[in-house]
Design a protein around this nucleic acid. Structure first.
Lengths: 203, 203
DNA sequence: CTGCATCCGCTTCGATACTG
DNA sequence: CAGTATCGAAGCGGATGCAG
């Protein structure tokens, strides 16, 4: 464990990994996704994570010149660590302070960790539109992989505000009913059922 | 996750938790179990962890006056986080450097995280004597709980040097055969089989 | 505009020394 | 044994500068 903490024990390392678990991101995306990190710290973290073989950066000269950072296979394996932290931290999140949950990305990432993927049908792909931002939820191998951006093809789509999504995970069925469902209604209801109360479950 | 890291994201916090997962410990035990921590940092961490409801300290006036620190239920739940880190870090532990693995406590704690508890018989209690230090391994609920000290009653006992134990987890069958088995041989062999190659498995 | 590097004030760390 | 006090060094958060 000490070896693991040598690599991802720094204050921001796991938060950077968490951002990249949703898909590749640019330097400035990471900066705004990690409020308060400071540009020097981010560049140092990225360099360290790159040296540790957790992150790679790649240029995308296709449409616009930019560099994106993404996780290696080793980095993606940190999802078990991130998920464990999310699950443990979710129970201590007693008060849904208005300032606490700001970013749809954070919500979707946590959601994937909190839902029991085994209650969903293997291979189902969901599209979530949270405050207008599209995300993909993929049920495979008994757990759920989240990524930003819309899926090529979705089994079902859920749309709604971040607040309604959030309250739904805390057991608010009224909020859950406010979410707009499209596509396979049966599949959507399975996800809704799994979501409901996800943040308050002990497991 | 940010909330979780607020509490256990500090440099030594999870290492302190890891020590206490093996059972209650005194201040000076923790100091020597965490090389390089510095007494002021330890006292600060313990105060913070106590304020967060993860650790409590209790006086034991029975035989000798001393203060022991132990985890609350919330603190014990961090085992999933610690185990995830151990499993992730184990694969990066390529070289079995002679200086890397020093403490039998660290080995036993990692072992419990790396073994698949479902291959053992529910309720089995093992005693491990590693370099003469006794430990308890309890198979319950599909995973394995490790603690320091001998069990009241053991189904089987394994004795050996730390090096032999360690090499056994890396697939060295010669080292595994050097371990002395007492008690229920069938149960002991189940554990040995689960141990063998535990550190190199991908899962 | 993106992807950093540099400087600066401040907190925290690690080590040592000291006390109830 | 169980910490507190002190101190230099390192790292963090923030602002700014700057090349591609």
């Amino acid at each position: 464990m000490a070896r693991a903490l040598d690599v991802v024990g720094d204050r921001w390392a796991l938060l950077v990994v968490r951002e990249l678990l949703l898909g590749p991101r640019r330097y400035s995306d990471l900066l705004e996704g990690l409020p308060g990190i400071g540009t020097n710290v981010l560049s140092t973290r990225l360099r360290d994570l790159r040296a540790a073989g957790i992150v790679v950066h790649r240029r995308t000269p296709k449409p616009t010149p930019a560099t994106v950072y993404e996780l290696t296979a080793d980095g993606r394996d940190l999802r078990s660590v991130v998920d464990a932290l999310v699950r443990w931290g979710a129970r201590r999140l007693t008060a849904p302070d208005t300032d606490d949950i700001l970013d749809p990305r954070w919500f979707v990432g946590s959601l994937a960790a909190l839902i029991d993927g085994k209650t969903l049908v293997e291979g189902t792909t969901y599209r979530l539109d949270v405050d207008g931002a599209p995300f993909t939820l993929d049920a495979r191998g008994g757990d759920i992989a989240a990524s930003h951006g819309p899926p090529p093809a979705a089994t079902a789509t859920l749309k709604g505000t971040l607040r309604d999504f959030f309250n739904a995970t805390r057991g608010d069925k009224t909020a859950a009913r406010r979410l707009v469902v499209e596509g396979d209604v049966r599949a959507a209801n399975k996800l809704l059922a799994a979501m409901t109360g996800a943040a308050t479950r002990t497991t």
